[in-house]
Design a protein around this nucleic acid. Structure first.
Lengths: 251, 251
DNA sequence: AAGTAAATGATTGTTTTTGAGTAAAATTGA
DNA sequence: TCAATTTTACTCAAAAACAATCATTTACTT
């Protein structure tokens, strides 16, 4: 047995049992005690497992990973509900702008078979849109590492050649005084341009974005309707409604 | 057994098993241990697999993207060599157009850290380019299902705002009389436009494309230099050379 | 057809991995 | 606390795997 295979086996065993004794691992891998020990040392220094006297267990980091995944899937759930609500605001045959970002990505499943035309600046969005059979246009521009968004002067120019019935933006900061903000100035300009080109504008923001401020300003709250969830505190909700329309989605 | 065949076989084996020992590979390929070792070294330096003591496993990158790996598995080795040769034709700091398609996709690893500027109409290319830290521009246009290429009048217009030192096209048909052809008329126009905008133009075509004809015409052979492999028969090679420059890559 | 280049398989010495043995350290139970 | 037991870390020799070299075969060129 290859040593990598053996180490994978050990990880698999630990995944099912959480802990295992040296003796068990010797039996299950068919290797000698010394070899298993060496493997455990290696795996521990790689932070894959934690050695304990007489055996090994999954490392805290590794064991916490599913917990983190669950936690983000809670956030994911909120985003999904917001995305679903946003998509429901569209009439058949409309033309919309879909901003780059993970929240707008979640809208895609709800856009299929509705005769919509989608324009986007998010590279990761395109394969999903095409897969769903949605008519998709991509604005041009410079690709930005990390988010895969298209930005820059070319993007702005290309964007200006469209008109939209609706525009859906992902936003990092929503604040009564500082308005909508996002960390990247290049992306901010694109978002603002899209806002101006659309008949109706919507900002998708889970509760963690409300009342936070990031670097680059896009514009005041009144420019768009905010779609958020009922995980937002009541007083914050009431406060926001002084400035613009707010749609609250129940999770 | 041809050595390229044998290497493809090794890849296939690893695709099903994920890891394999030297002895297994010796049995399954019928080659000697020394030869298998040499193959593994080669495949590792090409970043196709990862060698481990006693055998080999699929490289991490490849395991994460099975769809692309499978898609490009037809004549994959040949395409890779053609792509490598194509990339070697670039000087530092040049600006190039990278056409959509699987062959041009293979060029990306060879473009990193060379201060190049890449303009592309291939959506699948963008994440890879950004990942390698390459300055990347995307032309706009309508997304096409299947290939993920950007086409249409918007694409043409956006394209015309650039000038290229070099342009690399994937092509489906290369024929002395009918010239370069591709199945989709929309893509054909984009390719032709790119050809006209570039100082130097290259067509990447594995041997299966030579002397075949598909639906939409792009232009005559003289418009670009052809990069193909030594799997092309000698007489076909000689014939092609009557019409344009041909670079033959050894596999 | 002769010569050249490439690929292969066998052989060599070197490195890595492994398993066993042993002394030190940790754990357990009285 | 102390002794008995278990677990661990370390060393060493054997085995497996490796890289490098060389002779042979195969394929290509002129």
């Amino acid at each position: 047995m290859l040593h990598t295979e053996r180490r994978d086996t050990i990880i698999e065993i630990l995944k099912t049992k959480d802990t295992a004794s040296i003796h068990e691992l010797v039996e299950l891998t068919g290797a000698s005690e010394a070899t298993v020990r060496r493997d455990l040392s290696k795996l521990e220094s790689d932070e894959q497992i934690k050695r304990i006297h007489g055996g090994a267990s999954l490392s805290r980091r590794r064991r916490n990973e599913p917990t983190i995944a669950e936690k983000s899937s809670v956030n994911q759930w909120e985003k999904k509900k917001i995305a679903e609500a946003a998509a429901s605001l569209l009439e058949p045959g409309e033309c919309l702008f879909l901003d780059a970002g993970t929240t707008t990505l979640e809208m895609i499943p709800y856009l299929a078979d509705r005769n919509l035309v989608v324009v986007t600046n998010g590279i990761p969005h395109v394969p999903l849109l095409l897969e769903k059979g949605i008519e998709t246009y991509v604005i041009g521009g410079k690709g930005k590492q990390g988010t895969g968004a298209l930005v820059g002067i070319k993007a702005i120019e290309a964007l200006k050649e469209f008109c939209f019935d609706a525009c859906f933006l992902g936003i990092n900061g929503v604040h009564p005084v500082h308005g909508y903000t996002t960390p990247d100035p290049d992306e901010a300009v694109v978002k603002r341009t899209a806002l101006d080109l659309a008949e109706r504008s919507y900002v998708l923001a889970d509760h963690s974005k409300i009342n936070s401020i990031t670097f680059a300003n896009i514009g005041e709250l009144a420019l768009a309707e905010i779609i958020t969830s009922d995980r937002l505190r009541d007083d914050e909700r009431t406060n926001l409604k002084k400035y613009t329309d707010v749609k609250v989605v129940s999770t």
